[in-house]
């Protein structure tokens, strides 16, 4: 079964970069420009295995998005990975405490995303054993 990823970033250019990496791993993708848009897509039926989440966005930031997703038991299996320029140690700790599984600091190279997904057992190409 194809895995699905939601890319949440207010920059189209950044979503384009992430989309190229993620579709290369055979994920099906959806995109949202902020946290609320992503929640709306999920409410409407897009069920992601993975969310790549920017922190600073208009309307709803990535940190709030994570806390919202974690309130909902039906989304407990969604893997949440922050991809953000926020790079203080305290911010990483805060995101992990709120329920993020992994954290990539911008700038990153494509390998960084691929390796992080391997760490999470999400290397695309179907549900891992």
């Amino acid at each position: 079964m194809t895995q699905r990823a939601m890319i949440i970033d207010d920059s189209r250019a950044m979503r384009s970069i992430l989309r190229r990496i993620i579709t290369g791993l055979d994920f099906e993708t959806a995109e949202a420009g902020h946290g609320q848009e992503a929640l709306d897509l999920m409410e409407a039926g897009f069920a992601p295995d993975l969310c790549l989440i920017d922190w600073n966005m208009p309307v709803m930031d990535g940190y709030t998005f994570i806390t919202e997703v974690r309130k909902r038991p039906e989304w407990r299996n969604v893997t949440l990975m922050m991809v953000t320029t926020e790079s203080e140690q305290g911010q990483i700790v805060k995101a992990l405490a709120a329920g993020a599984h992994e954290y990539v600091i911008k700038p990153f190279t494509p390998d960084a995303i691929v390796e992080k997904l391997e760490l999470l057992g999400l290397s695309g190409k179907g549900i891992p054993a």
């Binding site: 790079s87 203080e88 140690q89 990483i92 700790v93 995101a95 992990l96 993020a100 599984h101 992994e102 954290y103 990539v104 600091i105 700038p107 990153f108 190279t109 390998d111 960084a112 390796e115 992080k116 391997e118 760490l119």
Partner: peptide
């Protein structure tokens, strides 16, 4: 560097074993 840290370092280990 930040770019090197992104390469395969689990976030939990980053906060445990590194200081900025």
């Amino acid at each position: 560097s930040q770019v090197e840290m992104n390469r395969g370092m689990p976030a939990t280990s980053l906060v445990k074993y590194f200081n900025r």
